[in-house]
Deep mutational scan, measured.
Amino acid sequence: SMGQARALMGLSAQLDEELDFREGDVITIIGVPEPGWFEGELEGRRGIFPEGFVELLGPLR
């Protein structure tokens, strides 16, 4: 894990590789696949999402 982030708003996945989450969910960050995107894990599910949907809870490791 690289850190954690809290969802500022919900994301309804449009693509298979995207992660669904609700506002307030705390997501474990597991990677940065490309600039502007995070890869995360939530409730046993993994996927990517735009960084603008979340606030980091501390610096990434």
Rank of each mutant, 00 (worst) to 15 (best):
M2I: 13
A7R: 07
E18V: 09
G47F: 06
R61H: 11
D25Q: 06
E39Q: 09
R61T: 13
M2A: 01
G40A: 02
F53K: 09
D16G: 08
G36Y: 03
L8A: 00
R61G: 12
E34W: 14
Q14P: 11
L11D: 06
L19P: 00
E18M: 07
M2D: 11
E55T: 08
F21Q: 01
S1P: 04
F38R: 11
M2P: 09
E18Q: 15
Q14T: 14
W37C: 05
R22H: 14
S12P: 01
G10F: 00
L15H: 14
F38I: 03
W37R: 10
I48M: 07
V54N: 04
R22E: 08
G3S: 03
A5Y: 02
E23G: 00
D20I: 01
E23P: 13
V54T: 04
G44K: 08
F21G: 02
L60I: 13
E17Q: 12
G10A: 15
E55L: 09
G40I: 08
G10L: 07
M2R: 08
E39Y: 13
F49A: 06
R6A: 04
L60E: 13
A13D: 04
G47R: 01
L8D: 02
D16R: 10
G31H: 05
R6D: 00
R46P: 05
A7D: 02
F21Y: 01
E18A: 08
T28A: 07
Q14S: 12
R46N: 09
S12T: 11
R6C: 07
F49T: 00
E39W: 10
E41H: 04
V54W: 05
F21T: 06
I27Y: 00
W37T: 14
R22L: 10
G40M: 06
R45L: 00
D16V: 09
V54M: 04
E43G: 11
L11F: 15
G44D: 05
E17S: 13
G10V: 05
R6L: 08
L11K: 15
T28L: 06
E17G: 14
I30V: 14
G58V: 07
M2K: 03
E51Y: 05
T28F: 10
A13N: 15
L15W: 03
M2C: 06
R46Y: 03
D25S: 08
G3C: 06
G47D: 02
V32Y: 11
D20C: 14
A13M: 06
G44C: 01
S12W: 07
R61D: 13
E55R: 05
Q4H: 14
L8T: 11
W37P: 07
Q4I: 13
G3I: 06
E39T: 10
W37K: 15
G44I: 03
L15P: 07
